[in-house]
């Protein structure tokens, strides 16, 4: 593994849904300004793991988490950590684009507004900057008052990315962000990920092997709640050290 600055360090993470264990003893370092892809068959725990990184699993009843997730040197599962504060820094993009039924402008301004930014000029600036970063500004700049639901699926997903960027996170978690999009919209998202990693650390769950190979620097292969292999993406896809990984990435099962 190449050396890089660690942004999130996961140490022996275990997670249960009720009696059923969904994650078993996962340890993994997520590096700053790199794209880390999480791959594996359905139900392998990759989405659960992703949601463990910003404590979105807290919202589900009966979830129990053990182990440590260190972000900025602090275990985010420590009693003293406020999940709300954490989520400001670790943003999330969901599988199904989920703009609010509000205008494009209000969607992007939602985060800044709940943090108490009221000044119209600052909000305008944040909205423009975020939409530019999400490569959506040129397409919507004349229709900022249009409903966020009125634009295409690909645009909606980029709107959600702009909305997440507006709160100035450090890490962006993406849960199969392009799985519901057509190939053109998908490639736009992928280009965007490439741009965004210059400023942000990105963790992306994907079902699409080619996508993982194209966009990520590191790849983690999950199977049945365990981390099977984690390495540089190039290595995972060409010379994985574990046979199971090779079988999965070459499409022999999964």
């Amino acid at each position: 593994m190449e050396n890089g600055q660690i942004r999130i360090q996961v140490k022996s993470l275990n997670l249960w849904y009720g009696e059923k264990q969904a994650l078993e003893n996962i340890s993994l370092d997520i590096l700053t300004n790199q794209v880390t892809a999480l791959i594996g068959p359905s139900g392998c725990g990759k989405s659960t793991f992703l949601r463990a990184l910003n404590r979105m699993n807290d919202l589900i009843e009966n979830v129990r988490t053990e182990g440590e997730v260190l972000f900025e040197g602090i275990n985010i599962y420590d009693k003293s950590v406020d999940a709300v504060e954490l989520r400001k820094k670790v943003g999330m993009i969901f599988q199904k684009s989920n703009p609010f039924p509000k205008s494009i402008y209000e969607n992007v301004a939602y985060g800044p507004k709940i943090y108490g930014i009221r000044d119209k000029k600052s909000l305008d600036e944040i909205v423009e900057k975020s939409l530019r970063q999400a490569a959506l500004w040129d397409e919507v700049k004349d229709d900022l008052s249009k409903s966020g639901l009125s634009i295409s699926g690909g645009q909606q997903q980029r709107l959600c990315i702009a909305r997440a960027l507006a709160v100035d996170p450090e890490v962006i978690l993406m849960d199969e962000p392009a799985s519901a999009l057509d190939p053109i919209a998908t490639s736009k998202i992928e280009e965007l990920i490439f741009e965004l990693k210059k400023q942000y650390t990105i963790v992306i769950v994907t079902h699409n092997m080619q996508q993982a190979a194209r966009v990520s620097d590191y790849t983690a292969f999950f199977y049945m709640g365990e981390l099977v292999e984690y390495d540089i993406t190039r290595k995972i896809f060409t010379t994985p050290s574990i046979k199971h990984t090779e079988e999965y990435v070459t499409g022999r099962f999964g």
């Binding site: 910003n54 979105m56 919202l59 709300v84 504060e85 989520r87 400001k88 943003g91 999330m92 969901f94 199904k96 989920n98 703009p99 609010f100 039924p101 939602y110 985060g111 709940i114 943090y115 959600c160 909305r163 997440a164 709160v167």
Partner: peptide, 12 residues
């Protein structure tokens, strides 16, 4: 999804 969107943005 809408609730999660708000919570993931750091909404209380």
């Amino acid at each position: 999804e809408l609730r999660e969107a708000s919570l993931a943005l750091g909404g209380t």
